[in-house]
Amino acid sequence: MTGTETVEPELQALIRYIQENRGVDFRGYKKSSLRRRILRRMEDVGIEGFGAYHAFLEKHAGEFPELLNTVLINVTSFFRDTEAWDALRTQVVPRLRERAGTDGHLRIWSVGCATGEEPYSLAMAFAEVFGADVCNRLKIYATDLDEDALRTARHATYAPRDVEGVPPELLAKYFDRTPNHYVFQRELRKCVIFGRHNVVHDAPIIRIDLLVCRNLLIYLETETQNQVLPRLHYALAEDGLSSSARRRPSWRGRGCSRRST
C-alpha cells in the first residue's frame, strides 16, 4: 500500500493468505487492481465479502488456480500488436544478427511471458533469420510469476483460436497439427527456457541482448516501477535493446534513460 490508497483489513488478510499459501508475492502490485480482480472472481463463484471468500479458499484449494488466472491476467497472444512485431523484424532482428556475426550467441528475456505466446513468437521471428542453427545461437529466457501459466507454456499446445495471430506460413512451418490443437515445434522449443521469477524481488537475468516486457509494468505501483526499471536496465548487455508496452513500438538501447526500458 502506497500513498493514500487504503485496503480493507479482510482484503489484507486474504492477500496475505494467498501469498503464504501459493508463494505469490503481491507487494508492489496496485491494490486497487488486486481488489477489482478478486471481486471479479468472487462474483464468478457467487460469494460476497472478502472474509467469506477467504473461508471458501481454505476449504477449496482447487479455487486457487482460477483466482490466480483472474488476478494475474495473462493477457497475451502470438505476435500481439502487429506494428510492434513489424518493428522487431525490420529494426531489431537484423541489428542483433549483425552484432552476433557468424558464430556469436544472443540472449533474450521475455518478462511476464504468461502462457508462452510471446517467447515462441520471438523464437519464430529469429528462426526466420538464423535458420536451422537458431537454437545453437539463441537462448530465450521466459519468466513469469504464475506457475500454472508456465506449465501451459512448457506444454506448448494451443487451441485453434489461440494461434489466429500466427501468419499462415509460420503456422504451417513451426506448429504440428493434432485433431484439436496446434503444438509448437519441439526442436524450436529448445531455444526457450521457462522459469518462475518475481521481477520485483528476484535478481535479474543478466547480459541480455534483447529484453521484452510488455504485460507487466502497468500493473505495478509507481514506487515499484521505479525499483523494477533499474533492475531491467541492469539486465541489459552493452548495446542491448529493450521494449515495454507502448502505444507506438519503441526499441531502445542500454544507454537510454532507465525509465525508457
Rank of each mutant, 00 (worst) to 15 (best):
E43G: 09
V111L: 08
L171R: 06
R40C: 03
E221Q: 12
R97L: 13
I15L: 14
Y234E: 12
Q91G: 00
R189N: 11
V166H: 01
P168Q: 14
L241D: 10
G195Y: 01
Y234A: 10
V134Q: 08
V134A: 12
L170V: 08
A125V: 12
P119L: 02
G62H: 09
E221K: 02
G165H: 12
P168T: 12
A87L: 05
D25R: 04
R248Y: 11
G116C: 07
R214S: 06
T70E: 14
C256K: 04
P160L: 10
L217K: 05
K59Q: 14
Y158V: 02
N69P: 01
N69H: 10
F130D: 10
V24G: 00
Q12S: 12
H54Y: 13
D239V: 02
V183T: 06
E20H: 07
V134K: 05
L220Y: 10
D86Y: 03
P160K: 06
H233N: 11
S110I: 10
P65F: 10
G165V: 14
K173G: 04
E238C: 08
E98I: 05
K139R: 15
E48S: 05
L122K: 06
L171I: 01
L150V: 09
S33Q: 09
Y234M: 04
A235G: 14
P65Y: 08
A156G: 11
A52D: 06
D81H: 09
S242C: 15
N21K: 14
F50L: 08
P9F: 06
T82M: 01
D202K: 08
A142Y: 08
R246S: 13
F64Y: 15
I140D: 07
S32E: 11
F194G: 10
N198S: 12
L106Y: 11
R154P: 00
R189E: 04
T102F: 00
S257E: 13
V129D: 11
Y182C: 01
L241T: 09
C113L: 01
A132D: 15
V92R: 05
V134C: 07
Y219F: 14
T2Q: 11
D44F: 13
V199I: 15
I208T: 15
F79L: 00
A125I: 07
L106D: 13
P249Q: 08
E221R: 07
S257T: 10
T76C: 00
L14C: 09
R107H: 11
L68Y: 03
P179I: 05
G104Y: 13
E147P: 01
L150Y: 04
R137E: 04
V163R: 00
L138S: 07
A203Y: 02
T178R: 05
D25V: 05
R80G: 06
R186V: 07
D176A: 07
L229Q: 14
D44E: 15
N180K: 06
R107I: 03
F184G: 02
T157F: 02
N21G: 03
